[in-house]
């Protein structure tokens, strides 16, 4: 139970950073925290106590179709996809932050207020 709660805590920390910080880069970092929290949670979902990593190392395992005591590999595959998505969003966010810096010469979001409402 504690690992799950830790994920939720990490999520909330990230949300706090995104909401309260004024620096664009810190917002991106906060967003990364949120993403890690969700990914970690998803990876934990597939965990089984005492199970092995789902990798086949011997040809015999394939031939005999031995169902070893593996952890669920599906969440790991999904988390990998989610990480790739997270990577691209982080890259895009950072490039937007850099563009904003070039335009306004500051990372402070309270000075970047061309848009109201």
């Amino acid at each position: 139970m504690i690992p799950y709660l830790a994920c939720v805590l990490l999520f909330l920390i990230g949300l706090y950073v995104v909401i309260s910080k004024r620096n664009l880069i810190k917002i991106v970092i906060g967003f990364s925290l949120i993403e890690y929290a969700v990914n970690l949670f998803f990876a934990l979902v597939g965990f089984k106590k005492g199970a092995l990593a789902p990798i086949i190392t011997q040809p015999e395992q394939v031939r005999m179709g031995v169902a070893r005591n593996f952890v669920d590999p599906v969440p790991q595959a999904l988390v990998l996809t989610a990480i790739v998505i997270g990577l691209s969003t982080t890259a895009l966010m950072l490039s937007l932050a850099m563009r904003l810096y070039e335009k306004y010469k500051t990372f402070d979001i309270s000075e970047i207020r061309r848009l109201k409402g």
Binding site: M93, L100, K103
Partner: peptide, 21 residues
């Protein structure tokens, strides 16, 4: 890539990605 557009995109992106998470 004007000021307003980048700013709107950043705002949109932060909210949208939190939604996605």
């Amino acid at each position: 890539t004007e000021e307003e557009e980048v700013e709107a995109a950043f705002k949109y992106m932060v909210l949208g990605e939190v939604g996605g998470a």
